[in-house]
């Protein structure tokens, strides 16, 4: 491998938003992403939308993965999306949501700008493949 080949590494932020103490899924996905060769930043539990926005903007991640199992997605996700918009980060960040999202809520989230929603039982490879294919080109 020559030294000038661009070292393209997909960067992800895995975020837990709001009052939701279940992070096994977030851990599993963080680890799977790491093993797929991604750089993963894990937010830790109980983050406010502002913190997620700050981290996404500053870390310039390609992918923001929000894990929500609390049912508050309709409140929290739009806040995050609005913040990303404010800092000009919405267009070139792939936003995926994982967790318990009822079918009837999905169209609304997708309208907010979420790129994909992965429910329980999604094979890990599917998520990784989706990220690899859809991670935005950085120019």
């Amino acid at each position: 491998m020559s030294a000038d080949s661009e070292q393209r590494t997909i960067r992800c932020l895995i975020a837990k938003v709001g009052l939701d103490g279940h992070d096994r899924g977030a851990h599993v996905i963080s680890r799977a992403f790491r093993d797929a060769g991604f750089e993963v930043i894990y937010s830790g539990l109980h983050r406010a939308p502002d913190e997620i926005i700050q981290a996404t903007v500053q870390e310039d991640v390609d992918v923001l993965g929000i894990s929500i199992l609390s049912g508050a997605h309709n409140t929290l996700v739009p806040k995050v999306m609005a913040g990303l918009e404010e800092y000009g980060a919405l267009d070139d960040t792939l936003v995926i949501v994982g967790g318990i999202i009822p079918d009837e809520d999905r169209p609304g989230l997708m309208e907010e700008g979420v790129d994909a929603i992965f429910g329980p039982g999604t094979p890990m490879e599917e998520t990784i493949e989706f990220v690899k294919e859809n991670a935005p080109e950085r120019t």
């Binding site: 060769g37 993963v40 894990y42 830790g44 406010a48 502002d50 981290a55 903007v57």
Partner: peptide, 24 residues
């Protein structure tokens, strides 16, 4: 794999939401 978990951000609890701390 070249993969990494970058975990230091978790500890930056005193400066959350403060954009004037640019943590990378």
């Amino acid at each position: 794999t070249g993969g990494a978990v970058l975990g230091d951000r978790i500890r930056m609890a005193s400066n959350v939401g403060d954009m004037d701390v640019f943590f990378r």
